[in-house]
Design a protein around this nucleic acid. Structure first.
Lengths: 117, 117
DNA sequence: CATCTCGCGCAACTAATGGTTGCAGATGAC
DNA sequence: GTCATCTGCAACCATTAGTTGCGCGAGATG
């Protein structure tokens, strides 16, 4: 079971940033948007948003397309689903480890109650 | 439901870093360790590991204590469990949103089968 | 007890990244 | 035709992950 690290670090760091998470949220809720509309609802400038959109585009979480003079971005739901699966996988891995450690600790406690304490 | 973002950004960014995730993994598996033992098993220097341990300590995911001339670090399982819960919460939120969107899309498809296609 | 070793912590420096401001170009609106 | 506005580019700043180098203090060893 090595390390539960069948994890795509690029995807992770993409969704690791709080601003990018909020952007994905907004794009999901509003069904797409542009750097300008997004920055209206975020505490950062349009340019910062544009850079983040670039990052998200590079890992495939969003796709941009020109619509007139606007560049509209939409969430790639399949890729986001993949990212969500990674979150779930890591949390499950740690969860399992924590549970196992707790079980082992209890077993030791029971089998050697006053060994070194 | 706002945004599913009842999320502690400090905890997130702490576990967002791939090196820190691996460190937590190692600490869990080996039941604690020092900056030196950790850096032996990681592609970064002891100092980098020490800095990361500082970050993890600051958010309470590990606790350090001097043992002889070594500084031993151990995972705070309760805090890690909290972090895991946040991962699970975010993934659940997005999962739900994706599911809802898919359902709505299908409904639209069904009620207006040849509207714009 | 003297010494030697090993692990730690501090400091300086670099590279990448999230963020800013400012500007120029293009295109839809009037 | 002109104006407004949205985009993209570039320069710049701050923070952070990473490095190397150094000095120190405490355990182990003779």
């Amino acid at each position: 079971m090595s390390a539960g690290s069948a994890v795509d670090d690029d995807l992770w760091s993409a969704i690791g940033d709080p601003t990018r998470r909020r952007m994905l949220d907004l794009l999901l809720v509003e069904g797409g948007g542009t750097a300008t509309t997004l920055s209206d609802q975020l505490p950062v400038t349009r340019q910062a948003v544009a850079k983040h959109l670039g990052v998200l585009d590079r890992v495939g979480l969003v796709h941009g397309s020109m619509a007139g003079r606007e560049r509209r971005y939409d969430v790639d739901e399949a890729q986001l689903a993949r990212a969500v699966a990674q979150l779930a996988s890591v949390s499950a891995a740690w969860d399992g480890r924590l549970a196992r450690i707790k079980r082992i600790a209890e077993a030791i406690e029971r089998s050697a109650p006053s060994r070194d304490d």
